[in-house]
Every structure is written in C-alpha cells, then in structure tokens.
Amino acid sequence: MKFFSFYIPTVVFSAINLLVLYMIMKKILFTPIINFVENRKKLIKDSLDHAEHQKNEAEALRKDYEEQLKAARMAAEKIVEDSRVKAEKQHELLTQVARQEAEEILVKAQEEIQIKKEQMLKELKAEVAGLALAAASKVIEANMDNDKNRRLVDKFLDEAGAA
C-alpha cells in the first residue's frame, strides 16, 4: 500500500467503523449516563421539594399549635382574673355585711344601755324621793300636810337634780 494515496476500501471501512462506534458508544455510554444523571437530578429535586413541603407543613402545624396554646393561656388567665375579681367582690360584700351587722349590734347595745340608764335614773329618782320623803316625814312629822310636803320635796329634788 502506497503512502499518501487514497484507498477507497479504507475510507469506506473507516466510515462504517466510526458510525458503528458512534451508535454503540451512544447506546452504552452516553444515553445511560445522561439519563441516569438526569433521573438522579430529578430524584434529588423531588426529595428536596418533598422535604420543603414537609417543612412548610410542620411550620404551619407549629404555628397552629402555638396559636392554640396562646388562646388557651389567655383563656386560663381570664378565668383566673375573673375568679379573682369575683372573690374580691365577695370578700368586700361579706366585709360590709359584717361591718353593718356589727354597727347595728353596737347601736342596739348603746340604745339599750341608754334605755337602761334612763330607767335606772328614773327608779333611782323615785327611790331617792321616797327615801327623802320618808326621812323628811320622820323629821317633820305630823305638821305637814302630805300633799304639801310631797310637792316641796319634789321641788327640792328637781332643784337638786337641776343643780
């Protein structure tokens, strides 16, 4: 075979070889790897999307729970506050009632004391008058008209009482 000369069979064989090589390499190297990498990319993207989705969901759920918790806490606080207010009111009411009762009792007691005092004073007066009369009658004896004496004593006693 001469150097630097065209030999048609070599050209034809080379062309066939190259085409066959191209087809085989495309089938066993390029298509599988390109598809594989493509699929893997898709898989990774899918799982990332999935994870993102789940994260969002969890976040939403968490927010929901948090809100619920907040609401519950607020409700509890309200209940406590309410009961506190109610208790205070009750307490005030009770105290007032007690104070009123106590005052009433006090007033009644004073009134009673007053009444008793007056009564005693009246009795004392009457007794003193009787005693004085008796003493005076004993002193003065019969000269004296009963009615006149009594008036005199009373007058005296009134003067003394006034003094």
């Binding site: 075979m1 030999y7 069979p9 070599t10 064989f13 080379s14 070889n17 066959v20 090589l21 085989i24 390499m25 066993i28």
Partner: peptide, 16 residues
C-alpha cells in the same frame, strides 16, 4: 483490510 482499519477495530474494542 489495512492496519488502519485493524487498529481502529482494536481501539473500538478497547473503548466499548
């Protein structure tokens, strides 16, 4: 079949 073609076959076999 020249040695060019034969060497191509060898290279093809290696590559495949």
């Amino acid at each position: 079949v020249t040695d060019t073609i034969f060497l191509m076959w060898i290279i093809m076999a290696i590559m495949i």
